[in-house]
Simulated scan of single mutants.
Amino acid sequence: MNNKIYFTPGPSELYPTVPQHMQTALQEKIGSISHRSKQFQEVYAHAVAGLRQLLQLPANYEVLFLASATEVWERAIQNNVQQESFHLTNGSFSERFFETAQELGRKAQKYAAPFGEGFDVEKISVPGTAELVALIQNETSSGASIPVEDINRFREKAAPEALIYVDAVSSLPYPAFDFDKVDAVYFSVQKCFGLPAGLGVWLLNERCIAKAEALAASGQVIGSYHSLPSLLSKAKVNQTVETPNVLAIYLLGKVLEDMNSKGVAEIRKETKAKADHIYAYLEQSTAFAPAVKHPAHRSPTTIVANTTVPASEVNKQLAAFDMAIGSGYGKHKETQIRIANFPAHSPQQVEALVAKLNELFG
C-alpha cells in the first residue's frame, strides 16, 4: 500500500474524501452511464452548481469541460482571436500558450519577465490591436504569481473589446477573482482540486461566446466538435459534445460539495497560513531559499525554492518518510524544488514536511 503524501505540483495529493467518492462511484456504476442520460445531466449540473457556489461565479459565465487546461490554449486562440493575441510570460507554461498562438498562425506578441520573476504592471503596455490578453496568474513551472489586484488593472490597459484570459491552473480556488474584470479563467483538476488528471475546466463569459460566433459568421474556422458554439450548445443542457471523463466530472462535483461545506474563505485562510509556514522555513534554511525574490509575487499554492542539494537527493531522503515533493521544471530539475500547497494538504501534513526538511537538510 502506498502511504506517501504527494506535495508534487500536479498530479498531487488526492483530496481526503476522494477514495470514499470513488467507492460510491463504483457502487453506482458511474463509469457505465451514458453521457446522454438524465443521470449524467444531473452529474454535470451538480459539478457546475458546486463551481458556481465555491467561486461565486456570476450568472453570465458558462462552465465548459475539456480534456485538459492545455486544450483551452488552442480552443481560445481558434475561437477568440482573428489576428492578434498578447501574452505575459515568465515561465514554461505561459510561454507555451504564446507558442500555441503562433503555431495556429496568429500574430502573437508577448511581454516577457525572467523565469521566476513577477511583473511590474506599470511598465506593461498592452497593444491596442490585441484581441486576447493572456495573463498567467500562477506559473506552475516557476512559482511566480500575479496578485488579483494587478490582474484587475488589465481591463483598463487593454482595448475595450479585448478579452482577458487568466491561467489559474495551479491556484484556483485560492485567488478571489473579480469576474467582472476578466472574461475567461481556466484550470485543471489534478492540482488544487485534488483529483486524478484528465479534466480541464473553462469558465468564460458572454463576450467570449459572442466573439466566437462573430468569427464563425465571418467565415473563419473556429474548430469543429470543440468550437465554442458547439461546446455551449451541449453545456446548456448539461451535456458534452462527445463522451467525456464522466468519472472525473462526478468526482469534481463531490469534492466541490466537500469544499463548499468547509467554505472557500476557510480554504483560502488555511492555504495562506500553510504557505506562510513553508516560506518562513525557506527564508531561514541553509539548504533552500525562495526562488521568487519579491514576496508579493510568490505563489501561495506552488512554492518554488532554489536548493543546494540536488532535488533527486531531497526526494530520495524524503521517500523514507513517505513524502514526495516536486523537482524543478525543465533545466531547473535538480537546482530547484517545487512544493504544492493545495487544499488536499492538511496543516498537519505541511508541518510534518517542513519539520522533516529542517531535520534532514537544515
Score class of each variant (00 low, 15 high):
M1P: 09
G10T: 02
L14W: 13
Y15H: 15
T17F: 07
P19W: 10
Q20T: 14
L26Q: 13
Q27S: 14
E28M: 08
I30M: 10
I30P: 06
R36H: 14
S37E: 07
Q39R: 15
A47L: 02
V48T: 11
Q56C: 11
L57A: 10
Y61M: 09
V63R: 10
V63D: 10
V63L: 11
E74A: 13
G91S: 08
A108T: 06
Q109F: 04
K110L: 10
P114M: 04
P114Q: 03
G116E: 00
E117W: 00
P127V: 02
A130M: 03
E131A: 06
N138D: 15
G143S: 03
F154V: 01
F154N: 01
E156H: 09
A158G: 06
Y165L: 12
Y174A: 07
F177S: 04
F177C: 05
D183R: 03
S188G: 15
C192L: 02
P196N: 09
G198M: 07
L199P: 05
K211D: 00
L215R: 01
I222A: 07
S224C: 03
Y225A: 15
S227V: 05
L228I: 15
S230G: 14
L232H: 09
S233H: 11
N238M: 07
N238R: 07
N238A: 14
V241I: 15
L247M: 15
V264L: 13
I267H: 04
K272L: 15
K274Y: 06
I278L: 13
Y281N: 05
L282G: 02
Q284V: 13
T286G: 12
P290D: 06
P290G: 06
T301I: 08
V304M: 02
N315D: 05
A320I: 00
G328K: 03
Q336Y: 05
I337S: 01
A352V: 08
V354Q: 02
N358K: 15
G362A: 09
G362D: 11
